[in-house]
Nucleic acid binder design. Structure first.
Lengths: 158, 158
DNA sequence: ATTAAACCTACTAAATTACTAGGTTTTAGC
DNA sequence: GCTAAAACCTAGTAATTTAGTAGGTTTAAT
């Protein structure tokens, strides 16, 4: 099983989309500057998210990405699956041929763990994350930091 | 977070110890042949397990390793921690300075997940694994395969 | 026509994993 | 005491993955 920066970036970016994409599409450049993730790397991740039908894109100036459906219908597990292939903890990928074609001593343990992790992450939607108080305040901090130019200044910026 | 062959090998080897180490110490050569794990690699893993006081060793001929305490007092999480450093799912290792010294958008999510995984694996002892029916039968199969020579045959081998 | 954006492909540096090689030290048994 | 079985130790290495860079093309708003 792998749960590294890749999956964390993907979830973070999707959450950014959920927070900012309510009106118009959000460009990867915006996400990149708000979340400190390399633009090119984001492009690669979003190619996978798009293939997995989690986001839809609008090309050309003013374009960007939108969630393909409501934040209450997109779950963290789906995002990680999309970029990480799997959160499976077994060595055999669930095929149970871990030791010379037969099941290994600890196969069932890893199956149980995979199940556990998957069901935990499947129970958390983007909408639930958006609703969290700490997410709200961190997002506000990020907005203040990355859009200091143009438009009226908010109080938080002075 | 990482959960790869390394952690799986360690848990498998420890379970092998729990199954076979009731009377005399078990050599890594035995574990290696039963579980198909490279001997040298096992040595490296056991160096860590020993440093974490999960096993004790007996040197010289007839020597090997024993669990340092009862199988009901050794938990899967401890074994994985010993060889893997951590099952933490955050990028910052829990220090909450993920984004330029401040907490990142998804920090709390990964904290929750880490907590979840750790408490799951902390609740499973070697003794509980030994008691599982499927572990018993897989172990019997492995014994039959790797000790066909010498000594009186057990009923399970004919 | 410009330009902002998605979209695409190939490459690369760093890290990690899984493993090998080649020792030394300890100690039981002869 | 000698031999051999075992732990113990250090260094290296091939393969894989991650995270990121580079350098484009295509699309479409203005």
């Amino acid at each position: 099983m792998r749960l590294t920066t890749k999956g964390r970036y993907a979830v973070t970016a999707m959450l950014d989309l959920a927070l900012h994409g309510t009106e118009k599409p959000v460009s990867l450049a915006d996400i990149s500057s708000r979340q400190d993730i390399s633009l090119s790397y984001l492009e690669q991740l979003f190619a996978k998210l798009r293939r997995n039908d989690l986001v839809s894109s609008v090309r050309g100036p003013g374009g960007g990405y939108r969630l393909s459906r409501g934040g209450d219908e997109i779950f963290v597990a789906q995002i990680i699956d999309a970029v990480n292939e799997t959160v499976d903890a077994t060595g055999c990928g669930g095929t149970a041929d871990c030791q010379q074609g037969e099941v290994c001593l600890t196969h069932h343990l890893w199956c149980d763990l995979s199940e556990q992790i998957h069901s935990f992450l499947s129970g958390i939607s983007l909408a639930q994350l958006v609703a969290r108080r700490e997410v709200q305040s961190i997002s506000a901090r990020q907005d203040a930091r990355s859009q200091p130019q143009g438009g009226p200044l908010s109080l938080a910026e002075v």
